[in-house]
Write a protein that binds this DNA or RNA. Structure first.
Lengths: 131, 131
DNA sequence: CTTGACCTTCCAGTAACTGGAGGCCTTACT
DNA sequence: AGTAAGGCCTCCAGTTACTGGAAGGTCAAG
């Protein structure tokens, strides 16, 4: 399978697939003309990557997950630990963003948004201690 | 005022302040020994930056906000537009993260997390169409 | 034999810093 | 006078996960 086909099937840009090869996540074979030749197992790995990345796992997390995936003797606890840590990070990010959202919503509401220069948003950025 | 003092007062790392000078956000004076010498106005700008960045505005947004801040004839609508766009992005990011959070929570719940190799998290990453 | 769609590599850029090396300046203490 | 600590300087490189583009080889159709 050539890269274009893999790209379509895995839903990843060709650039990304080449990049994943660069950093050693997949190692496709090569045809005599130099073209990458992907096996089904490469395809699977890439699809796995796509899904893991869509869930926000870092590349390094993905690398570890792939290794666990390959390891028939893995303990599911190892996978769970990675997922739980990631989940915790997602949750703390949500909390942070929600705080920002609240503040911004307030500011936008308070600002007249007309052609006068008076602006509570700027005033806040100027003065608010914020932490 | 030297960079150390400014760093403390503005709550920004020295490295960041130097970086902000590099990209033209502040232009402190220089003492004869080459040390940066920050005026109150520089200090204010940096504090403004710190607060804007804490609200998640990009550097370019900050640059625009600073320009509007400096412009006595600005229209508050311009500021409001920037803030509203940013708010929209924050909100969409929250939605994305919440979707991820849901999926992950489910997966973590389903996974036994013991020393057996059977793991629904990996199974999902392997198979789930996900979009 | 040329056109277009593939594929290749390599270089550079993104956002917003952060770390570190190597080295000067200042101040205080012995 | 010497020295040690701490602050300051510049410059280079690395981070994350790609993405864009240039220059060029390959392949199938007409």
């Amino acid at each position: 399978m050539n890269i274009g086909e893999v790209s379509k099937r895995a839903g990843l840009p060709k650039k990304t697939i080449r990049y994943y090869e660069d950093i050693g996540l997949v190692t496709p074979l090569r045809d005599t003309n130099g073209y990458r030749s992907f096996r089904d197992s490469d395809m699977h790995k890439l699809a796995f990557m796509g899904r893991s990345r869509a869930l926000g796992f870092t590349i390094e997390d993905c690398r570890n997950l792939l290794a666990l995936w390959d390891d028939q003797d893995r303990a599911s606890a190892d996978v769970r630990t990675i997922a739980k840590e990631h989940l915790a990070q997602i949750e703390s990010k949500i909390v942070d963003l929600q705080a920002i959202q609240e503040t911004l919503t307030l500011l936008v509401k308070e600002c007249a948004g007309d052609d006068r220069p008076d602006c509570p948003i700027l005033k806040t950025l100027e003065q608010f201690p914020m932490k």
